[in-house]
Design a protein around this nucleic acid. Structure first.
Lengths: 188, 188, 188, 188
DNA sequence: TCGTAACCGAGACGGTACGTCCCGTCTTGCG
DNA sequence: CGCAAGACGGGACGTACCGTCTCGGTTACGA
């Protein structure tokens, strides 16, 4: 026997309620009880489909990111501008909460990287590799620095995460690309 | 009238218990009740002196960071090596937890910046400014990128936060310093 | 929708635990936390169904009194003997505690009268009214005096609350009945 | 050395504060902390001179009763009217609270009887003994019934504790006195 | 077409941490 | 040494949420 199929309506209501509450109260102040009530759903329905609050929000985030337009890979500055716009909002704050929770839950960290952070990182790598001239061997470090700035500002909020930052980073990357790499001879 | 003075012994016991528990269970799993029991103190003694768990741990972190040797400002690589060593341990994970909590508590973010992040940032700035040749006008962005890498790896754990990273960053900064700045004429 | 029904088992366990603890420690020394632990139940289950400790014990008392044999209304002495036997035990001490608490909680006093004291009083009235010869117009005062003795000895413990008291009161009531009422002519 | 003598001012302030708070909040809601604050005194000063809240209030009650005019022993009705007037106020409610606490503290009951209840009882006995004709052998039971009514109405509040009650009781006692005692021959 | 298995809402269950209040004790400095 | 002040370890308060468990009621197959 198969039984009654999962209610897609309940699933959507839950994810949307979770997002709404995260935006209103902040990720750590959101409770599963609160989500169920906001969604008008039973509590067991949450526990049936998700193991933890983090799992639920991770799915909500994935849905949100994937339903937004795919990041343009045309040039670095555009890509960064789009990425920063996404991070500098509710998504960023929720993902920051997930990231924090992952500090004491390595499995969550793994899923976070696999589903949200990894793909973005791969896209940035592709964009950088396509840039003329290629920025040399330290590509991974370069990626870390670019997304590092993003995370740092996302969390620390000491400076905005905006289009101007995208431009500045693009400029800096160009300078690095133009400069001699550590293993290369300076052009005579 | 004066009343009984605050017990320095209780204060130390609480801070040390908090650190011990954070190391064992991770910041978000630590409870004030647990800290009080671990410290052998009354629960009210915590609430008397600290408003929240975050406040308590922020003080513990400040104490830990300040009681460690002052960061050597001699050269960038040494400074980064020391800083990364500090971040790549219990301190890092706790501060990450605080940072996450600050996402929905701006006042906490303020204190975090004032007490922990700001000073380190100022030191990095001083180190960079003393470097020959100076890295140009984008000093703030450079600082963001360097500490950005640190935060990114601290949270995301996709790559180590070690002496080799300190070296790579130092090398990259040297390359940037050697390259023409955005506002400068390329040397003909 | 309906939800999970109330657990009759938990209800009983709580009432019985409350009685057990009252007997052991005395009503004012009983705590809701202690009852929950003794009953092996969650603390919230108490708060869900009873507003206060007094409410809970009032229900336990009502249950105890009603589950004991209905007071025999045959003659005054038997009724008093049974009533005193009930009062001169755990029930009495708990009800005394409730009565004391009712001093600063009029609503509790109301419920106490409605559920425990009133019915007993009505029965005594019925018993007295059926007595030949009827004790005259001051029936209410007579009831107050009879139950007054009971309460006085229950609380003050200066003299026993036993069958001999029941007998003495019965004798005295007979004397009063035999004597001329205040509004009557003395027999010439 | 003898040290500083006890401050009579503090003692009075404490007793008066205790009475004030009992009147305002009811005996069981009064705390020693609250009394100390209301009295503008240190908490240790309370614990130095009284063992418990009950002890303190017992002293306050004794003070209050003794400072009121000594009960007139002229005739029963006047004595009862005065006694009821005292009981039907703050004193009554506080003593009821003490009585309740005494249910699980026999030593307190002892002191309560020795200091407050016993003396009054002795006076009532003297008044009754002086009445012509003497009410016979059941004097103790009669006392219990008279004060029983008082306690019953004090606690249960189902009827007033006033001058009219004093009159009714006096009338009833007269009837009992006029009736033949249980051990006596009816007058031929 | 009808049973039945799995879903759904509601909400009670045993737990546990929260932040507050008071307990009774202690440790200051002043009088 | 008494006293006001007030911190200390301890413990109960009432609340909120956890994750689990029953309920009655509702689909949507497959026998």
């Amino acid at each position: 026997m198969v039984g009654r199929p999962r209610s897609e309506q309940a699933r959507r209501a839950i994810l949307e309620a979770a997002l709404r509450l995260c935006e209103r109260d902040g990720y750590p102040n959101v409770t599963l009880k609160g989500i169920a009530e906001e969604a008008g759903t039973g509590r067991q329905t949450l526990y049936r489909w998700w193991d933890t609050k983090a799992d639920l929000l991770l799915e909500a985030m994935t849905y949100l990111v994937e339903s937004s337009r795919a990041p343009s890979q045309a040039d670095l500055q555009t890509f960064l501008r789009e990425t920063f716009a996404l991070a500098d909002g509710a998504v960023g704050r929720v993902v920051a909460g997930l990231m924090a929770e992952a500090q004491s839950d390595p499995a969550l960290g793994e899923r976070l990287r696999a589903r949200l952070i990894g793909p973005r990182r791969a896209t940035l790598r592709a964009v950088l590799e396509r840039m003329p001239p290629p920025p040399g061997a330290d590509l991974d470090l370069l990626i870390d620095m670019i997304f590092g700035v993003m995370w740092y500002r996302l969390l620390n909020r000491h400076a905005p995460l905006d289009a101007s930052l995208a431009e500045d980073i693009t400029t800096l990357v160009a300078r690095i690309g133009a400069s001699p790499g550590p293993d290369e001879e300076r052009p005579g």
